[in-house]
């Protein structure tokens, strides 16, 4: 149970999202999502493909514009057009399925460009911080490499380090291991596990159910454009209520 008296870090209120769908009109992908996330939460969002999980995550930093509803991040409604979204995005790291490293920059360049250009940090300071984070993801020897010289797992660990360089208050993970070869999934999950242990607030969209069970403090089940169930890992897997969730978990095993 989250018996948190503090204001949530992220409050989602009646979030709707529709995509225009050719000539046949609109398709609803999120309908009336209401959920709060607190500092220190390690919330996993699971569910069948097409449930709207990724869209939901991408609405949180406005990579997708909500059709209606409000999302408060640190007390500010980021759905408001007048909000300087770039400033708030600095506080929300995001890790993509396809890594999206900058191929024309070295690993060091990928890690330092944000702090240097956006936070006015000096080159020396930015590189010092980058080295620390590279050590944390165990890739300190690849600082001068370019992304195309790295394996998928290494790319994703660099992408995580790049986000951490901005010292975000929350990290959004959009299927971080879905594009990886199976033998590389472990190294990325290991980095994420350590992040969770360090009390980083994390929202993770994933299909890694065993990992969710082990690391999450909350698991949300999304299907049919809605959050159908939310629980702690033990009850989520041990005592599911929703029929859709029961069917989903059965298929998983």
């Amino acid at each position: 149970m989250t018996t948190d008296e503090r204001r949530p870090l992220i409050e989602v209120k009646h979030l709707y999202k529709e995509f225009s769908n050719g000539k046949s009109g609109r398709e609803e992908v999120l309908s009336d999502i209401c959920v709060d996330f607190y500092e220190g939460d390690v919330a996993f969002i699971v569910g069948p493909s097409g449930a709207g999980k990724s869209t939901f995550l991408r609405c949180l930093n406005r990579l997708e514009r909500a059709t209606s509803g409000e999302i408060f991040f640190e007390g500010v409604n980021i759905c408001d057009d007048k909000v300087d979204i770039d400033r708030h995005r600095q506080k929300m790291g995001m890790v993509f399925q396809q890594f999206n490293l900058f191929p024309h920059l070295s690993v060091m360049g990928n890690l330092t460009i944000g702090p240097m250009k956006l936070q006015g940090v000096s080159k020396e300071e930015a590189e010092e911080k980058a080295i620390k984070l590279l050590r944390r993801v165990k890739l300190e020897d690849r600082a001068s490499s370019y992304p195309n010289q790295l394996s998928g797992g290494q790319k994703q660990r660099i992408a995580i380090a790049r986000s951490l360089c901005m010292e975000p208050d929350v990290m959004l993970f959009d299927e971080p291991t879905s594009a990886l070869d199976p033998e590389m999934v472990g190294e990325v999950l290991e980095v994420m596990r350590e992040l969770a242990e360090d009390k980083m607030t994390m929202l993770v969209v994933t299909h890694e159910m065993a990992f969710a069970k082990e690391v999450a403090n909350r698991i949300l089940f999304m299907a049919d454009t809605q959050i159908l169930e939310e629980n702690d890992p033990v009850n989520f897997f041990g005592n599911p209520q929703n029929e859709r969730l029961k069917a989903f978990l059965n298929k998983m095993i």
Binding site: D86, R89, F96, Q98, F102, I113, K117, L118, M166
Partner: peptide
């Protein structure tokens, strides 16, 4: 790739900065 725009945006770069850098 669209992902390059999104990576820039998610770090907090504006559209113009993302283009430039």
């Amino acid at each position: 790739d669209e992902g390059q725009y999104e990576a820039g945006a998610s770090l907090g770069f504006s559209y113009t900065q993302t283009m430039l850098y």
